[in-house]
């Protein structure tokens, strides 16, 4: 299967603030080590799949999409879109991508209508009848009422949809969608998710999307990649990622005591087998332990509680949702750092 996107050891440092740092990067023509945004990211997205890039804020998702969009140069490594180098062949790449940026307003002429804006982009992408195509998309996505309004007068959600239509009118084989459901109401978000799942009626379309919303990734993506602090932590099917976490990642114990005592939390936190412990309420604790050693950890925690003369009301392992699994992966990555 052909790779629509291929990244090899992609690394990006943003220069630090300050005149000296900036000058050193300008005149040395190389990056002095600044803020690391991507750390040797290697990834393949295959033609025809819907791939979701998950990560908390600041993880590097938008940096990755900007490099693929050709508006950001990587520090090291390579990235290719359908075999074209994003640095050396940017124009060839741009013909193959439709981009939906995180900020939907960018690139729209604010005093032109949505229809005029879309028609302009249709012309640029060589669409046969750009005005008619713009009208068709506007109707399909329920924006007829606002199609003649100045773009700047559209609501946040309407602008977000408009930004998606701008990517769609390109008829490009690869869509890069940065947070596609951000700012949409429930009905619109559901509609957009459905359309993504259907690949907008184009079976050969490849969709690469970023999101911090796990429900979106779980519902629409064939595969999911989790990124944190610029590093890829896991890439697999969404259901496998949950199992991966549960089987080789972390377990969460919920402990409830009848007689809350001072010092219990500190005592639990001090155990080597405990990765993290938080107090949910008086006498209620959530304790994260390694999955592989969870029963040993349970024994040690119980022994500690008995030594402290605590009366145990209940203790059980908690089932993780994908969201919780994701948070644990991210936190686990921080534990391992």
């Amino acid at each position: 299967m052909r790779a629509a996107i291929e990244a090899r050891d992609l690394t990006k440092y943003y220069p630090l603030e300050g005149v000296r740092s900036r000058l050193s990067t300008i005149f040395n023509r190389g990056e002095s080590r600044g803020k690391l945004a991507l750390d040797r990211v290697s990834l393949r997205v295959y033609e025809g799949e819907v791939f979701g890039f998950l990560g908390p804020n600041g993880a590097g998702k938008s940096t990755f999409i900007k490099i693929l969009s050709t508006i950001l140069l990587p520090t090291e490594g390579k990235a290719y879109v359908f075999g074209y180098d994003v640095v050396k062949e940017p124009m060839a790449v741009r013909k193959l991508i439709g981009v939906m940026p995180e900020i939907p307003d960018r690139g729209f002429y604010r005093r032109l209508s949505l229809k005029d804006n879309l028609a302009f982009y249709g012309r640029i992408y060589g669409v046969q009848n750009p005005v008619r195509e713009a009208e068709r998309l506007i109707k399909e996505y329920g924006l007829e009422d606002v199609s003649r309004k100045w773009f700047q007068k559209l609501s946040r959600g309407e602008k977000q949809k408009a930004s998606l239509l701008r990517a769609l009118i390109s008829r490009a084989p690869l869509l890069l969608l940065d947070e596609p459901t951000l700012g949409l109401d429930v009905v619109s978000a559901r509609m957009v998710k459905r359309r993504i799942r259907e690949k907008f009626g184009r079976p050969d379309l490849t969709v690469f999307l970023t999101t911090h919303n796990l429900a979106v990734a779980e519902e629409v993506c064939d595969r999911v990649g989790i990124i944190n602090k610029g590093r890829i932590i896991a890439v697999d099917r969404a259901d496998r990622i949950v199992r991966l976490v549960q089987m080789s990642g972390f377990s969460v114990l919920l402990v409830e005591l009848d007689n809350p005592k001072p010092g219990v939390l500190e005592a639990i936190k001090g155990l080597d087998v405990v990765l993290k412990a938080v107090e949910l309420g008086p006498g209620r604790y959530e304790v994260t332990v390694s999955y592989n050693g969870r029963y040993e950890a349970l024994n040690i925690i119980l022994e500690t509680l008995v030594r402290m003369k605590c009366r145990l009301r209940s203790v059980r392992f908690k089932e993780l949702s994908l969201e919780e699994a994701f948070i644990k992966i991210v936190e686990g990555d921080e534990f391992n750092a």
Binding site: T70, I71, M91, R94, K95, P101, R106, G107, I124, Y125
Partner: peptide, 13 residues
């Protein structure tokens, strides 16, 4: 700045 970043993602120089 409103348009420049965007202009560099479309197939027009």
């Amino acid at each position: 700045p409103w348009n420049l970043e965007w202009l560099l993602t479309i197939p027009a120089s």
